[in-house]
Amino acid sequence: MQIRTLLRTLIPVAATLAAASAALANDPFPSKPVRIVVGFSPGGSNDIVARLLAPKLAEGLGQQVLVENKPGAGGNIAAQTLLSAPPDGHTLMMCTTGTVSIQPHLTKAPFNPETDLLPVTLIANAPYLLLVNASVPATNVKELIAYAKGHPGQLNFASSGNATGGHLAGEMFKSKAGVDIVHVPYKGTGQAMTDLLAGQVSIIFDQAVSSMPYAKSGKLRILGVASLQRLKGLPEVPTVSESGVPHFDPVTWTGLCASKGTPAAAIQRVQQEVAKVLATPEISQKFIAAGLEPVGSTPEQFRAFLAADKTKWGTVIKDAGVKAD
């Protein structure tokens, strides 16, 4: 009798729990505002991309899309924010070249990009521009290489810090062009750009979104685009590759990642909506004007891209003997 009584008590409870679980599983995504975590300060290229996407993505998802900056530790703080949130797709992260492809070769991060993160979509490629101070006696890449070879160790290049994408782009250029130029690391692109404009350093590899205004004003000179194809926003500027440095493609990128355990349906929905946003003329033109190449790949395509990208940067790091600070 006691067993029957206990069963009569437990069966309704179990049924209620099962119903609640089923309702939760069938709850359409998104059921609340979506948060995009950015691992860098406002105003940078990743922040700009996130804020360009957010309003239109919100329209497609039918929920608010909030951009939250969590700068510091090379993107690790943002990653920890993502991984501490429920894996339901309502918290996403702007994943970057540095955090996913470069950092694992240099330091032991508090997370594993390959197992803890799920690729959602590659949003855009952001090729570097090769820029020089206006006083440098070179108007194209070939002239720069010739001058550097004639004056070994006299030219230097700035970066936003040791082992950053800009630093590794310079190391790749040194190797492929066979030149001796000196790396000068700064504590951010702003400081590096200030000294480049003042002529304290000669060269920088920087993303177009932050450097094009200086080039348009004549304060800096663009010698080439560091990708295998010319930028749509700068069709007149040749690539470094076509200017005598074959296969020079230290392209950075910006994508969306979710945490492991996120339902495939949520990932697919976000990817589809992002692809729709990037296909709109309004957003596409804004990206192109900022020197970005909109992509919108599938999760599977993004996963394959990440594997190849990590290998590429790992080779540069090994060949140049780059070490973490």
Rank of each mutant, 00 (worst) to 15 (best):
T5E: 13
T5N: 15
T9W: 14
T9G: 08
L10T: 10
A19T: 05
A19V: 01
A20Y: 07
P28N: 06
P28K: 14
V34Q: 08
R35Q: 04
I36K: 10
V38Q: 07
G39S: 01
G39I: 10
P42Q: 10
P42G: 12
G43H: 13
S45Y: 10
S45R: 13
I48F: 08
V49G: 06
A54N: 04
P55L: 11
G62F: 07
G75F: 01
A78H: 02
T81H: 03
S84Q: 12
D88A: 00
M94K: 04
G98S: 09
S101G: 09
H105E: 08
T107I: 09
T107S: 05
K108N: 07
A109N: 00
N112A: 07
L117Q: 00
P119F: 01
V120N: 03
T121K: 00
S135Q: 13
T139A: 12
T139H: 10
K142E: 09
A146R: 04
A148N: 07
N156S: 15
F157I: 14
F157D: 07
G161N: 11
G161I: 03
H167N: 11
S175Y: 06
V179M: 04
I181H: 09
V182H: 15
P185L: 04
G190A: 11
A192N: 05
T194H: 07
D195I: 02
A198E: 09
D206W: 02
Q207S: 14
S210A: 13
S210E: 02
K219S: 12
V225S: 04
A226T: 01
L228R: 05
L231N: 05
G233V: 12
L234E: 14
P246N: 00
P246E: 03
H247L: 14
F248Y: 10
D249Q: 10
V251C: 01
T254Q: 15
G255N: 01
K260L: 09
P263A: 11
P263R: 13
A265I: 13
Q271P: 07
V274E: 03
T280V: 12
L292K: 11
E293I: 15
T298W: 10
Q301P: 08
R303F: 06
R303Y: 04
A307N: 07
A308V: 11
A308D: 15
V316I: 14
D319R: 08
D319S: 15
G321W: 01
V322P: 02
K323I: 06
